[in-house]
């Protein structure tokens, strides 16, 4: 994988998890497999991230009985997680818009 791409993805992983959880509560495997498909990451790295986000108070957890095997740990977005999502989303949108503008200028100069 392109090393630049790895750095980009690292930066937006948290934003992606927040966005995913803002739609519905979810459990580790589900978050990991959906993000792995979307941005091509190693699935194992989701758990250190969830741990950190939980300690930072962005998500909370609760257990749900599952039909097969032990109860599943679900993650839910907290109020501060939602604030963080809005802030990061705004920053991301601003940033990508500026980058796109710069790239466009570059394209006009070098046809």
């Amino acid at each position: 994988m392109d090393p630049n791409l790895v750095q980009f993805k690292k930066g937006v992983l948290e934003l992606c998890v927040l966005a995913l959880l803002s739609q519905a509560d979810s459990y580790g495997y589900d978050i990991a497999s959906r993000l792995a498909d979307a941005i091509d990451m190693g699935e194992g790295t989701i758990y250190p991230l969830m741990r950190r986000m939980q300690k930072d108070g962005m998500v909370s957890t609760y257990l749900v009985e599952s039909a097969s095997g032990p109860p599943r740990k679900y993650y839910r977005l907290t109020a501060s997680g939602r604030d963080s999502l809005n802030a990061q989303k705004a920053a991301w949108t601003d940033f990508t818009r500026s980058v796109a503008a710069v790239l466009e200028q570059h394209q006009e100069k070098t046809p």
Binding site: E43, G44, K73
Partner: peptide, 16 residues
């Protein structure tokens, strides 16, 4: 805690 997280990941993966 950590081991339980990964253990249930295997559980869920096999269920899938």
């Amino acid at each position: 805690d950590i081991v339980a997280d990964y253990d249930s990941h295997f559980e869920a993966g096999q269920a899938a």
